[in-house]
Amino acid sequence: MLTAIISIGLLAAALGLVLGYASIRFKVEGDPIVDQIDAVLPQTQCGQCGFPGCRPYAEAIARGEAEINRCPPGGEATINALADLLGKEPIPLDEERGTTPEEPLIAFINEDICIGCTLCIQACPVDAIIGAAKQMHTVIRDECTGCDLCPPACPVDCIDMIPIPKKLDDWVWDTPKEKLIVEPAS
C-alpha cells in the first residue's frame, strides 16, 4: 500500500518536474517590443493609420516601416509615449490620417431613423453594434471605441458621434475655472 503511494507519487513528481523544466526550456517568446508598442496604442482598431488594426500597426512600427505619428485617436499623448518607448523624437500628428477629437467620443444610433440595413455592423471593427436585418440597431457603449468608422457606412445618416454620457458612478465635478484662492490684497 505504502509502496504504491510512494512510487506513484514519485513518478508523478518526476513527470511534473520534466514538464516544469520543459515549460521553461521550451518557452515561446513573442516579440516583446511589439507587445509594448501595442499596449501604448489606444486599441480602437479603427484603421486610420492605414493598417488593419492596432496590432499590425505596432508590428509595422517595430519593423521600422511606419512612423509613430499615424494614430489620430491616440493623439499627442500616444505619440509622446511611443517616442519615449522607442527613443525617438516626438513628431506632430500626420494630418492626412485624421484629427484627434477634443474628448473621447462614442457612436450613437438615432433609433427612430435606423432602417436596419446592418451596414454599420459590418463596418464596426470591435463588434460594438448589435441588431439584425430590418431590425433596429444599437451601440453597446462599453464596447464602442469611438473609431468613427460607422457614420460613413450609414445610408440614412442616423449615427452621430457624441461625447461619452456621464453616469452617476463616473460623474465628477467640473474642474474650477477660476482661481479658488484669492490673493491677499497687499
Binding site: L15, G16, V18, L19, A22, S23, F26, K27, V28
Partner: peptide, 12 residues
C-alpha cells in the same frame, strides 16, 4: 505528461 511535453516541444 507525454502529450503536454509534445505540445510544448512542437510549439517551440
Amino acid at each position: 505528461a507525454i502529450v503536454g511535453f509534445t505540445e510544448m516541444v512542437v510549439h517551440k
